[in-house]
Design a protein around this nucleic acid. Structure first.
Lengths: 106, 106
DNA sequence: ACATTATTTAACACATTTGTTAAATAATGT
DNA sequence: ACATTATTTAACAAATGTGTTAAATAATGT
C-alpha cells in the first residue's frame, strides 16, 4: 500500500497536510471544495491529491463529474503504528498516553 | 522547535528514517558509526543528520572529536500527538490501541 | 451533437534536495 | 608545532518537487 516514507513525504507539504486535516475535520469533500479555499491553482491541488492518494492517505470516490476525497483510516494508522512501535522511547511512563485514552473514553 | 511538516519531511527520506530507527534501537551513536554502515558518503550522512537536527528529531552531543547523536523523545512525541489528535478517526474502536498498550504493560 | 461543469494531464520554469569530492574545522596525541 | 582522527562545510551536477497556463478528458444537461 506504498511505504511509510511515502506517507511522511505526503504530509511533509503544508498544503497537503492542510488538505488532510480539513478532510479529517469536515469529512469527504469534492476536489472543487478544496480548490475553492486554496491560494494555489486547481491543477496544483489536483496533483497534491494524487500524491496523497499514491501514499495511501486518501481515497477517491467518483460521483458524476465530481471526485470526492476522504482520509483513509489505514493510512493514518500506519503512521500511528510507527510511533507506537517506539512508544516506550518517547513516552517516559504510560501516564500521558493513558490520560489521553481516558479523556476520550468518557 | 520547528514545525510538524519539517518532521515529516525529515522522516520522508529512507536514509534518515533508517538512521532514526537505528538510534532508537541502539541508542546514542557517533556520526562515524552511522557512516560506517551507510552506502553513501560521510558528508551525505552528515547533512542528513543536520536535517534531522533542524527538525528537532535528534540531539547532538560532543565528546572529543566525536559527535554523538540520539533521538529526541519530544520530536517523536510531536508526531505521535498529531496522530492521537485524530485517533478517533483512524481507530474504529479502542480495542486495537488498548491491545497495544496491554502488550507492553506486562 | 454541443455546451457546461469538474477535474486531470501535459509542458515548462524555477526551487529544493541529494549525492559527490575537495577543503575546512576541531579536538587530541606526539 | 604537527600529524591524526572525526566531522562538517563548500561547490557543483543530477534528480525531484511545485507552481503556472493551456489542453485533454469525462459526465451531465439542452
Amino acid at each position: 500500500m506504498s511505504n511509510l516514507t511515502d506517507k511522511f513525504a505526503a504530509l511533509a507539504d503544508e498544503t497537503r497536510l492542510s488538505v488532510v486535516e480539513r478532510l479529517l475535520d469536515e469529512g469527504e469533500l469534492p476536489a472543487g471544495a478544496l480548490v475553492a479555499d486554496a491560494t494555489i491553482s486547481g491543477p496544483a491541488i489536483s496533483r497534491h491529491l494524487k500524491v496523497l492518494r499514491a501514499a495511501g492517505l486518501v481515497h477517491q470516490r467518483a460521483d458524476g463529474t465530481k471526485r470526492f476525497y476522504s482520509v483513509r483510516p489505514e493510512g493514518l494508522r500506519a503512521i500511528s503504528e510507527w510511533t507506537m512501535d517506539h512508544r516506550s522511547f518517547w513516552e517516559a511512563g504510560l501516564d500521558r498516553l493513558e490520560a489521553l485514552l481516558a479523556e476520550e473514553e468518557e
